[in-house]
Design a protein around this nucleic acid. Structure first.
Lengths: 135, 135
DNA sequence: CGGGATCCCAAAGGATACTG
DNA sequence: CAGTATCCTTTGGGATCCCG
């Protein structure tokens, strides 16, 4: 019903202004809990709705619907619905989606590389700052 | 009825098997509204608390405190507090933080490169799917 | 200046039921 | 199977006041 798009982004920056330069854009688009995971899964190949849901543990039907629709709308994902019974819908990355997946893979690489270091850092910090919260 | 071929899904293995390859970790850490922006700003050099706040329009004092503390805890940011009056606190990226900033820059590049294409795609989608929401 | 402690709200997202 | 439509809970984060 309501065509409320994403949140009311403060949108302080101008064209590229003094700073930021697009970080905020990509964050507004992929900063949610599921978008990146869907892109990563689709980077492996064509997937149907249920396949995606099974491949991404924890995602609800509703969120998968919303996430795929947003990616589709942004031109990152192609959606093909076959008018069969029962319905069959295929999702796959567009070329632009694949280029994003490549960039994301670099982030994942970074994460895997530094995961242990971060865990250790947290551990030390928590011991050095007892009963101090970061939530 | 034989269309329901839900039997053994091929389950194409990605480079990491059936997992998310660490994407989730980096998302849990940087998926919030401000962390990435703080990292980007600190990539330019040492900053004091107020400098960060002025450089990142819209961030509240509370969120800047929380964000810097989390990045500090994760070992991405170094924090140096000089016991002066008034207090003076400097933040800067650690080597690991800088490596993250580099990766983030690639994402920003991607965003700038495809920004217009995405905007166009959205526009077309919205016209092809009137009064359909993605929120 | 650089925070901490509270209060509070909008929004993201989960659970469930229903449908073509 | 692939969604919609509602309801409801959680929480991210803004606003405000206080403090060393």
């Amino acid at each position: 019903m309501s065509v409320t798009n994403t949140a009311v982004t403060p949108q302080v920056d101008g064209p590229c202004g003094d700073d930021d330069c697009g970080i905020r854009d990509v964050l507004d688009r992929l900063g949610d809990r599921w978008s990146v995971l869907v892109v990563v899964e689709l980077a492996k190949g064509v997937r149907r709705f249920r396949e995606l849901q099974r491949a991404i543990p924890g995602i609800s039907q509703r969120m998968l619907t919303l996430t795929t629709k947003r990616l589709w709308r942004d031109g990152l994902v192609e959606r093909i619905a076959y008018p069969t019974i029962p319905p069959q819908v295929e999702y796959r990355l567009t070329p632009m989606g694949h280029s994003l997946a490549t960039t994301i893979a670099a982030l994942a690489d970074w994460s895997r590389t530094h995961k242990d270091t971060i865990a250790t850092s947290r551990d030390h910090w928590d011991k050095a700052h007892p009963s101090e919260s970061v939530s």
